[in-house]
Every structure is written in C-alpha cells, then in structure tokens.
C-alpha cells in the first residue's frame, strides 16, 4: 500500500480518473446539449423534424441500453479512428463520452421540456426565431436543471471510468480492481474506494451549490 503511494501509482490513478472524467464531461456537454434540445423540440416541428427526432431518439435509446463495457469494446474501431489508438486514458475518453451523451441528452430533454411553455409563447409573440428561443429562453431557463442533470452524468462517468481499465485507461477504479479484487490487497481497495467516494461527494456538492445559486425562481 505504502509502495503505491510512494511510487506515485495512487496519485497517477487519481489523475487518470480526473482526466478521463473531465475530458469526457466536456464532450458530453458539447454533444448532449444540442442532442437534448433537438429531442425536446422535434415533436413541435414539421414532418422532417419529427422524423429526425424519432431517428435520434431511437439511436439514443440504443446507446443507453448497451452495457458500457460492451459499448466500449464495440466502438474500438471508432476510437482508433478518432484518437489514433485504442488503449490508454485518451482512448477511454471516447467510449465514455459516447456512452454519456445519450444519457445526458435525455436529462437535457427533460429539463428543456420542463420550461414553462408560456415563456416560449411570449418569445414567439415577440417575433423570436427558433435560435432566439433556444439560446435566450429555453437554455437559460433550464440551466438549474441542466446543472443537476450534468451532476448526475458526471457521477455516472466516474463509475464508468472504473471499467476503462479494460482498455488500459487506468484510473482509481482500475486500481481497485487490479490490486483489491484480483490481488486481494484489501487496503488498496479501501483507499481507492474512499477516494472515489470523496470525488463523487465533491462533484455532487459542487453541482447542488451551482444549481441552487443559478435558480432564481
């Protein structure tokens, strides 16, 4: 156990977890918000928009029904095409984001649908275009909900990242599995699990505080 601390393995694993979770969170936000908005708006549009919504909805459902470990392996060719390798923390970011985007998109959709339709109506009566409605009404009004959804997503990403060890992603979860589970070094397992608990706790606290501060209702 002391070895792991002294030779920096534990610190390295912590960094890997932060790296994987942080970067995949970024891509999840970039992908999940537009996808969620489209899902929320598609049933109000014309035929083509509704069709697109159905299609995206189906893809999202498929993405969410695949167990993460299977998804991770199934998209290895895609991962390799994107980052040039299929192993290591960089490679793990791809399946993590791909897995989290549909999850977050559904939470974004719920938050956007929760915005009072009267506000959209008021904006429409002002002559707003769709992008005005999305950028000035829906997203700002849904923001506290988006932050809560993101918090849930990031915590889920911490969990998924434990499985990234399978493709050499490393991280705290991987350490717990390799030392604690496979080598029966219980103390390592306990330390890593405690670190994960602290991490999840911090994320949740930060998310709650931010959502609360932004909520002006």
């Amino acid at each position: 156990m002391n070895d792991l601390i002294q030779n920096g393995t534990l610190w390295e694993a912590t960094q890997e977890t932060l790296y994987m979770v942080g970067l995949s969170t970024l891509f999840t936000v970039l992908g999940g918000i537009p996808l969620g908005v489209v899902l929320a708006l598609s049933d109000r549009g014309g035929f083509a928009t509704r069709l697109l919504g159905r299609l995206l909805g189906t893809i999202v459902n498929i993405g969410r029904s695949l167990p993460f470990i299977i998804l991770m392996i199934a998209i290895i060719p895609f991962t390799r095409a994107v980052v040039g390798t299929s192993i290591g923390p960089e490679a793990a970011v791809v399946p993590l984001a791909v897995g989290a985007i549909p999850f977050f998109a559904r939470l974004v959709e719920a938050a956007v649908r929760g915005v009072d339709p009267g506000l959209v109506e008021a904006a429409t009566a002002m002559g707003a275009r769709t992008h005005h409605v999305v950028l000035k009404v829906l997203l700002p009004e849904a923001l506290p909900g988006l932050i809560r959804g993101l918090t849930v997503t990031v915590v889920a990403l911490v969990g998924y990242s434990a499985m990234a060890g399978v493709i050499g992603g490393g991280g705290l979860g991987d350490l717990a599995v390799r030392y604690g589970y496979q080598r029966f070094e219980t103390d390592v397992m306990i330390v890593t699990v405690v670190l994960l608990i602290i991490l999840v706790h911090l994320i949740q606290m930060l998310g709650d505080a931010t959502a609360k501060r932004l909520d002006r209702r």
Partner: peptide, 30 residues
C-alpha cells in the same frame, strides 16, 4: 409580431433574467 405587444395572465417573465433583462429581451430579438 414585433409590432404587436402581448401580456399574459401569468406574466410569462423569464425567471433567469432580471427585470431589465426581461424588458430587453424583445429588443435583443429585434
């Protein structure tokens, strides 16, 4: 529509914006 104002029973103000921000919204849109 920009030349027709509308007010509603439940006000329909954006909770995410200040009073000034709400009044500015139609101007931003325009």
């Amino acid at each position: 529509r920009r030349r027709i104002g509308m007010v509603f029973q439940h006000f329909n103000l954006l909770s995410s914006r200040t009073v000034a921000g709400n009044v500015a919204l139609p101007l931003e849109i325009a």
